[in-house]
């Protein structure tokens, strides 16, 4: 445990630099995020990192803030989207995708847990192949994602021990996704505000917990362009707090499936609209 005064210094410094609030209960988070920094700096402990920060090492202060601010994500985050993938999306698309790889795009992949979770699910299903593209704005988090290297803390939330044993190798204190699973995900730097049509037609798009950072106009534009890339029978998965309603006419909620969206003009499940025949008088 860190001495209270040092913990207080750290939380105040980090808050000033990145806005992240480190409550007193975040001791484990601090330990798990700063221990790798201590190692790369050749320091004996997290406490030694903070000692140098307190002596005014600005570079180390910034490095600590960045290490702690890493966007929170974990394997099978929120669970529901992954259940939807196994129970709704994959069974619906599988027959028509036999003989070719299903195209999946994770549009805010962060440090890779989402695309790797999908790759694990697909590995566990028979007769399904997928081409998974994972993009993120930050080249730095994608480096981590590509390496597939996660701390002991990260592999213990959302991930069953059976999946850890099956899909990871031990790498010192960390755990690394096995090469065969890493080979199933392609990582590329990409900004949702830029043109992303080069990724081509997608069967499934995961775009979770990122639209919340954009203005209403930007959200509408991004959703319209996502719809334009989606296969006619494809699926868009958004975060639990996000929706297309009121933002685009090109997409609609899949009936009874929270967080799941389909193209507005997609076949059978579209609501029947009766038009009045009296308009052309």
């Amino acid at each position: 445990m860190l001495p209270e005064a040092k913990y207080r210094f750290l939380s105040e410094d980090v808050k000033r630099r990145s806005g992240l609030v480190l409550g007193p209960e975040k001791g484990y988070l601090v330990e798990s995020r700063l221990a790798p920094l201590a190692r790369t700096e050749g320091l004996a402990s997290v406490e030694a990192v903070i000692d140098l920060m307190m002596r005014g090492d600005k570079r180390l202060c910034e490095a600590a803030a960045e290490a702690l601010a890493t966007h929170e994500t974990f394997f099978f985050r929120d669970k529901t989207p992954f259940d939807l993938f196994s129970e709704v999306i994959a069974p619906a698309l599988k027959p028509s995708r036999a003989g070719r790889a299903m195209k999946i795009w994770c549009a805010a992949a962060s440090s890779g847990q989402e695309p790797y979770s999908l790759a694990m699910l697909i590995d566990e299903m028979s007769g399904l192949r997928a081409d998974i593209l994972a993009t993120d704005l930050s080249g730095k988090v994608l480096e981590k994602a590509r390496a597939g290297l996660y701390t002991q803390f990260e592999v213990q939330r959302g991930l069953s021990i059976q999946r850890l044993v099956k899909h990871f190798d031990q790498a010192g204190e960390n755990w690394q996704i096995k090469p065969e699973l890493r080979a199933k995900v392609r990582f590329e730097v990409g900004n949702l505000l830029d043109d992303f049509s080069r990724y081509g037609r997608q069967d499934v798009i995961f775009c979770r917990n990122v639209l919340i950072y954009f203005s209403v106009e930007e959200k509408a534009k991004i959703l319209a362009r996502l719809a334009g890339m989606l296969a006619d029978d494809g699926y868009l998965v958004l975060g639990a707090a996000e929706t297309v309603v009121g933002l685009t006419d090109a997409l609609k909620p899949a009936p009874g499936q929270r967080g799941l969206y389909v193209k507005a003009d997609s076949g059978a499940s579209a609501p029947v609209v009766f038009r009045s025949a009296t308009a052309a008088a």
Partner: peptide
Amino acid sequence: LRAGADEYVMKPFDGEIIESKFAE
């Protein structure tokens, strides 16, 4: 696992890890 364990927590742990593993 071979001896019949259902889940496995590596210390140090916290409430979130225990809850996640109990859910699994």
